[in-house]
Structures are given as C-alpha cells and as structure tokens.
C-alpha cells in the first residue's frame, strides 16, 4: 500500500523564516479576535515565569490576591491560567496591571535563537536523560 503524497505549497524556494522574536502577535486569520480586552498588554509568553514580589495590598482585586497566592514560588503564565481557570489572554491583562504595580516580577523565557545556545540545548538533553 502506498501512503498519500504531500504536495508542497511552495515547491521551489521556502519563504524567509520568521524572526525568532517572541511576542509579536501574529494574526493570520483576521476574522478571529482573541478573547479578553484589547488594551496594551505586557509582552508575556505562555512560559514567562511569574513570581510574587509583595503581599496582596488592601486594594488588591480577588483575581490579584488569588494570583499572588499562587506565585509565591515561580509559576508560568500557562499554569496560572490553568489553576485560575481563566483564558490566557485574561491572565495577561491581570498580570499587566500587577507588573505595573510591581506586585509581581516576570522572567522571560529562553527562546529559539538564530545562533542557538548550544549549552542550553545540552542542558535540556542532560535533564531529559535523567527522566
């Protein structure tokens, strides 16, 4: 039996690869709008690590208080979204305000680089080997 055959959409020259920069919100389907409000948002990745910097102030909203309790130890935005049962975009809105108020700090992820960090790749391999 022969498997079906993939047809390349760009058979000759692949288009230039996209830059590895994180945070640009690409929107290939303009019909779709992401949930949450559209204000200026901090540049947060799914795996940006969030750590609490302060106790909840009296003015904290319930969401902020819940979030601060969760990230007394570092926690990714994805995990915050999961534990709070809030969409990722909503969590980034809440965090944007909390970053501005210096209630939390954010640690950027290590992203794919044009010149790959070999020691990073080796560290990940070593970590996986221990599994």
């Amino acid at each position: 039996m022969t498997p079906p055959q993939r047809q390349r959409r760009y058979p000759s020259q692949p288009p230039a690869p996209e830059p590895a920069a994180v945070g640009e919100r690409r929107n290939p389907e303009r019909m779709f709008v992401v949930g949450g409000d559209g204000g200026d948002r901090a540049n947060l990745d799914l795996v940006t690590l969030i750590v609490a910097r302060a106790d909840p102030p009296p003015s904290a909203t319930p969401e902020q208080t819940a979030l601060l309790r969760l990230c007394t130890a570092p926690l990714s935005v994805a995990e915050l979204s999961a534990y709070l049962s809030l969409p990722f975009s909503v969590v980034t809105v809440v965090l944007t305000q909390m970053l501005a108020d210096e209630l939390v700090e954010a640690h950027k992820p290590l992203v794919r680089q044009s010149v790959a960090d070999r020691s990073l790749l080796e560290a990940v391999m070593h970590g996986l080997q221990k599994l």
């Binding site: 640009e24 992401v34 992203v111």
Partner: peptide, 30 residues
Amino acid sequence: ITEKLVLYLFGTPGQERFWFLWNGLFEGAL
C-alpha cells in the same frame, strides 16, 4: 531540567488558525 531551568511541553492542535492565540507559541519554542 536543572535547579534553574524548566521545560514546558505543549500539546497543540494542528490547525494553524489556533496558533496565534498564544503569543510566540511556535516562534519561541526550541
């Protein structure tokens, strides 16, 4: 991975129109 580094794995639907929902999901991935 180490005491300083952690790896996350995301199981992502195949349709590209969903990918833009998460900032840098593919662009930032190793």
